[in-house]
Design a protein around this nucleic acid. Structure first.
Lengths: 339, 339
DNA sequence: CTGAAAGCGCTTACAG
DNA sequence: CTGAAAGCGCTTACAG
């Protein structure tokens, strides 16, 4: 319960004094940038340990171009895909000895975008990774100044414009999932998407492409929020119809909500209705029935994004987009249609 | 495909030149720290907009004590509790106009702890919030220098030592959950905890206290990992025993794994065995049966932690710990024991 | 009220 | 190989 002593962190000059060397010499042993006599080196290390010295990052990044902070700009942090991607970035950054800062873009409004971008750029950042998972992220990536190392992360199959991109090919995955259902014998596949923000997602595009290629009817898209509750509500409506035998969902949570609604209304999944999700969240394999879904490797996505950023900070330009096609994981929630 | 122009961000001096005022004047209008003539102010704002100027945070924090970065030190980022807490911190920080940086402590080893702490402290941070959800976090909080604003976040019921703390009273919650099962008529309650790292968690302590208070037998603790797969394995063992009628689990994922194993082995939850989880993750209310669990408000926890940190940076000391007791949410996975 | 000067803690030429 | 000096982009006394 003593009053805390006011904290004056030791600075490089303190170390120099204690080790009886000059300030630049301490800097040199710290950065290993030039040869320093072993004896001095030794004294410096002892002084650092004795004083508990830690370099001041602000000062360091003011003078040098070397940065230890990479910034992430995202529409959120806690949803499955966001959290996993951020984790992937963090792990890769850690291996490179860098910390990661996160700034959430609250909405796609001009004010929120500007505020988030300003906050990010006022940190001494090596570059920024933008999660283009929603409109807020999309807007943010367009507000970044040219010349700053940056990479966008999203669900496309090719980058647009010259900016570096780490992508998951949602379109191919959506198509694959829909084709699987068609191959099982379903005449068509219904689709409950997430909120449509301006344009359809790759998942939705892939679904439509598969139906068209198979000459199947293209039912109207049902738009839900990304959560299970919203899926449940669509599930109740679907339970009342007799024409729906297969549903491809925008994500796993919607799929789980739909399955629960269907079974609550006396239908059997997959005997009466087949359901496919998107993401392969950890718990969905435990569900009854275990969910057939698309495995998105977000952690790998984040890791690839960081790799691209690092190469940019090292001066590489015009990097090819890094794109991966996710796998369909077949489990228990899909079957041939009822006779 | 033009080669990117090398990026030289405009600095304060550029704004001063463009607005035809002195450098300190620009600083003043930026920070609103002193009266500036409306006309000059106007010119400065125009110059800022024209040049797209953004203050350099490194330089700013070098000279002033004002910081726009708050650091989080944690053993992970993607698990439910971690992600939610970080989100709570982020939302509160955003409202205060601050960005958040995250550094993961890879393990409790000296090397990993030191590396994470060094990386954090080399950023221009206003203070650090440490997630004491695991041993890595616990070790990290002890390695931070005195005098630095810091708050620990964890599952205790009181802080230890003088450091500020935002807590969730797991002990009270564990006790409440166990008592509920006892009140339902179970003779005792079994417990599948997470990994025990040195000492038992508050949940386990609360469970034990409830049993002792009720004079019930205290079965041996079963230790699982935090994931559902590990819970499933314990569920298989439990299914073979006939003496287990109620299980209190360290988290929801373990509970879900156990439930699935139990039903896979022909048992009915809750008729044969009651199961209680811990966390109240979003999906568990959709499960069949919907999981009875403890609702931990991690987002609120993060928000409280940030509040405490802010007060410290404003000079307050000796802040009381902020502790909240989570609620038991009763759903479908619990019932009286079989006759 | 506004400007010229000093200085925050480092790194990077520049001398020796 | 090592040290004295300059400078990164700001903010904060200090003059006027």
């Amino acid at each position: 319960m003593t009053a805390p002593k006011s904290y004056r962190a030791p600075v490089l000059a303190d170390v120099a004094t204690a080790a009886n060397v000059s300030v630049p010499t301490v800097s040199r042993v710290l950065n290993g940038t030039k040869y320093v006599a072993p004896e001095l080196k030794q004294r410096v290390h002892e002084a650092i340990a004795a004083l508990g010295y830690r370099p001041n990052g602000a000062a360091r990044s003011l003078r040098s171009t070397q940065r230890t902070l990479v910034s992430v700009l995202a529409g959120g942090t806690a949803n499955y895909g966001y959290a996993q991607t951020i984790q992937g970035i963090e792990i890769a950054a850690r291996q490179a000895g860098m910390a990661v800062s996160i700034t959430v873009v609250e909405s796609a409004s001009d004010e929120h975008v500007k505020r988030a971008v300003d906050l990010t750029l006022s940190q001494p950042t090596a570059g920024v990774i933008v999660l283009e998972f929603d409109r807020a992220g999309l807007r943010a990536s367009r507000s970044l100044p040219e010349g700053l190392p940056m990479v966008v992360v999203g669900g496309g199959s090719r980058r647009v414009g010259p900016v570096a991109a780490a992508l998951i090919d949602e379109r191919a995955a959506g198509r694959r999932a829909t084709e699987y259902l068609l191959d099982l014998g379903h005449r068509t596949v219904h689709h409950v998407a997430g909120p449509t923000e301006g344009k359809h997602s790759g998942r939705t595009e892939g679904w439509r492409a598969a139906l068209k290629a198979a000459d199947a009817a293209v039912p109207q898209v049902m738009n839900a929020e990304w959560d299970a509750r919203s899926g449940y509500r669509w599930g109740e409506r679907i339970a009342e119809r007799r024409d729906v035998t297969a549903v491809f969902c925008g994500n796993d949570e919607i799929a789980l909500g739909i399955m629960r609604a269907l079974t609550d209304h006396g239908l059997d999944v997959p005997r009466d209705v087949s359901v496919i999700g998107f993401d392969d969240q950890p718990l969905v394999s435990l569900w009854r029935p275990a969910l057939t879904t698309v495995d998105q490797d977000f952690e790998d996505l984040g890791s690839r994004a960081f790799g691209l950023l690092l190469r940019q900070t090292e001066g590489e330009t015009n990097l090819p987009a890094s794109v991966v096609t996710p796998e369909l994981v077949i489990r228990e929630s899909t079957a041939p249609p009822p006779h």
